[in-house]
Amino acid sequence: MSPAKGTPKRGVSLFSYQCMKNCSATLEDYFEDLADMGATCIEILASDVENYPNPSTAWVDKWFGLCEKYGITPGGYGHWCDTKLYGHRRLTTDEAVANLVRDFKLANLLGFHRLRTKITTETRNNDPEPGWEKYIEKALPFAEKYDVVIGSEIHDPTVISTPHVAEYIKFIERTGTEHFGFTLDFSTFQDPAKINAAHFRPPVDDPASTREDLLGILPYVRHCHAKFYFMSEDFTEPAIPYEWIVPTLVDNGYSDCIISEYQGGSKDDAFIMDQLRRHHVMLKRLLGY
């Protein structure tokens, strides 16, 4: 029997607005923009939290006030597990766990259940550092306690067939955890041959993940970053095959968030806001809502 169709929510990551972020846009400006394009969930980065990692109660109240006012729910919380925090040494396992738990608590406080987690890497291919299981496994009971899913990101240039993805799946199966999985970034499906000047990014020669690859990891996909570098006037991303990515997720019962993430490198606010709207026209057409 085929699974019931999924009903993912359309969202936007504040990463998309990075050129505005260190200027004068306020948190409410972003909520207003999301609501304006019909997005119903939001992704923030840990660094979007005022006075991170210790927001005031007034800021937390403001956060929930904005969610209520604009009809937007917390979708994803992007954080980093930086074990190379100091130049002269790595964090100990306990220090790494403590920093993870600090983000779990904060995500929980702000209503997030999905994390985009960057595990320390030493390679361009995002291979996790040796020994990553030690601190991630020790953090799992806390992820359960604070009701969050650690979502290790699969992002270009990593493809789904990269050995470390299989290593993560082995870890999930061995521990039986429901609190570790993948944040799937659609950049892993981009066709390098179709990247053009409008994508605002240098050409790459990385391979692309396939539909079959996606089908193989679906049970472990807990959060999605709908990455795009350029949306054309006909509402397509020329280098990323959205036309089968979104239907494959829906047909297989995916009902978490699909978060738009613009990474095209333009510094023009108006252009980016238009690109996000083009992206949401495409998502609306693919989802039917």
């Binding site: 597990c81 930086d82 890497t121 361009r124």
Partner: peptide, 10 residues
């Protein structure tokens, strides 16, 4: 700056 996802060769 140094962040955890930056490979040494970069």
């Amino acid at each position: 700056w140094y962040c955890n996802y930056q490979a040494p060769e970069r």
